[in-house]
Nucleic acid binder design. Structure first.
Lengths: 214, 214, 214, 214
DNA sequence: TATGAATGAGGGTTCATTCAT
DNA sequence: AATGAATGAACCCTCATTCAT
């Protein structure tokens, strides 16, 4: 059931199809991308796609799973508790930005086809969503327990706001096809998102070290 | 060209079809909803749908326009400058929550089919998006000018974060089919979103009047 | 079954629809002309068309019958034997040209939809065709009996050639939307067709009174 | 863009569909022939038709082009000037008769759907028509220059009459489903058409060698 | 592995015709 | 007489999927 593309082995025909699917689905949308379009992009016959992917849906699953695999690997790393909450949140933000930087098509498809589309939302996929939401909420709740985050708002609501800010950023970049120019811009964006989440948009007169506009 | 459903006149067959479309598209997605499904939901023959809506797409436009019409009416009201920036932002938040409360299917479809789907994103629709983004950014920029909002982050970025938080809330409610129970809960949610946007998620020891968890 | 539009009574709603049908069918073809197009052209509601014409096909029949009625009236007049064969043929030619001059849309539709289209060719319509062919052949045969026309070619074949020349002329005018400018041009065309049919395209050195090129 | 059926290769599925289309369209007319009818006639599924022909219209184009290709090949051969004008005209006549003899459905469809139907008359198709008309007119004009054909009637008018006689013959055969029985009948018909075109229908007392009625 | 011919469910759309008002 | 809302048969075309080679 679970279809994942492991390595980026260039010799592997499966990953060739996978990358063709990424590009084609990003351009035409999942529904608009024909199997034959993907095959043409990969330079193979469309019949061959079915040697590696049982259904068209498997291609989407492979793409989605690449996102989730990376995210859950990060969350597993985070949950070991080695970092303080601010750093944990920062790493969650950076996962999105890193992935977008390395593989914008992956993020595009995830946002476009899955994150907001009920059409492709199977119960399996919804469960992965809830799982990631819960894992993030645990970090937020930890922040409330350790006194870093305010307790007057439900952890779940703070989670919505946190992930919402993050997703809005990435979504906008996705929709406007903006590229992240270098690691320093990426770091500044991550800091901004975290900063506003933690300290709000209000003018802070006591803030130490005014940050230049990003 | 522009297709709008004016009143909620129960006797009007057009609005009957419109409401059937809202329900059916919400359940099956725009692509998954057949014209015949909508007609069956409305209790009419599928041919009649084409008396009132030229294409299937016109149904989606009618839905979207109901959202935009309400929003731009609000933005026009806001832009007259009678309210302070905080109140303006609060009213923008309330528009989403109000509409969701009154017509959750409308918001669901807007979020699902339009807000994040490039598949249905025509240039006309994208322009409406940009317009709403720009109008919101004007409010944010006004807040920066009047000294209420921090200037060290670009107005556009703050706009992303603001709308992102808002959208995340509504999206999550949409995806999990949650209902807003009464006006008081709606007000509390609006306050939370605005509060975190303005003051951040960090614990504020100086905050006057701790709010109980919502 | 037989549907005819008798007079050109302007007050008659039926003839109003008939004339709208002529114009619309000429422009869009019978299949391409919607009942609603014809009604719009007539300035009435499409439902009213069905008060005067039971089916769409009845409109076509009314048009065709106007052609046939005129032709058979002429043939009846001709068959009384008052004219010599050459004059009879000339009158047959003139019927087409006259009708085209007065009602080009009628001739256009007859040629386009009936004369060469098996799609609309019911057996009733085919019989009318055969009847007109037979009547013309009788004139030709009379010419052969009276010694005016050559006997070495079957009367039926000569009929084909005669009607073919005539139809080719009218068809070309129909397809190129040419108008007949005045009665004198009409007479010249009729004479040319008859002349070539009778005397051929070959150069005649003995011909009395060279005719100027038409 | 141009869709032609090259050979009559029986193993070729494309030509199988082509021949099924010929038969079906001839029987039901282009508009009346459903893709599924053609597929059933060919003994295949309707989906396969779309493997070989992009649209239903492409089938009609393939048929038409077979006619035009043959005709223009003939006209190219003729225009080299090796034959005298009478022989050129005779060959033009024979092309229609030959094609009708070998492929009566092709000629039927050409006459029925294209030659007189504005419904299917695209500008591309009209241009081919004009081209063939012009090429024929050149032959006629050559006849006038060399003194064989009378000059007192415009070359274009003579062309109408010539092609009209020819088309009338073929059309009548098409409509009455007559077959040409052997080459000798075909030759006699060709001679008759040419004879009447050149010498007219009038009795010729000076004609050498009375031809027996055909 | 690899190809692409072959299948057919599925859905949007048109429009003649009916009929209540 | 007149309107136009309502119906549904009809048909083109797409494309995921299968399978013989």
């Amino acid at each position: 059931m679970k279809k994942t593309i492991p390595s980026d082995n260039k010799k592997n025909k499966e990953s060739l199809i996978f990358r063709a699917a990424l590009k084609t689905i990003k351009e035409k949308g999942f529904h608009g991308a024909r199997i034959s379009d993907i095959a043409k992009e990969a330079g193979i016959s469309y019949g061959l796609v079915y040697h590696y992917f049982r259904h068209k849906d498997d291609l989407l699953d492979a793409i989605i799973n690449q996102w989730w695999d990376g995210l859950f690997r990060l969350m597993a790393d985070i949950s070991e508790g080695r970092y303080e909450v601010g750093e944990k949140l920062r790493r969650i933000i950076l996962y999105s930005l890193d992935t977008y930087q390395e593989n914008p098509e992956l993020v595009n498809i995830f946002i476009t086809e899955i994150s907001r589309s009920t059409t492709n939302l199977t119960s399996d996929r919804l469960n992965l969503f809830k799982k990631s939401m819960t894992l993030t909420e645990e970090v937020i709740a930890e922040g409330q327990r350790t006194g870093i985050l305010r307790k007057d708002i439900k952890a779940r609501y703070l989670t919505y706001i946190f992930l919402g800010s993050l997703e809005a950023f990435v979504s906008t970049m996705v929709l406007s096809d903006q590229k992240i120019k270098g690691d320093s811009q990426k770091e500044r964006i991550a800091d901004s998102i975290l900063e506003v989440f933690l300290n709000g948009a209000k003018t802070r007169h006591s803030t130490v070290g005014e940050r230049s506009a990003i």
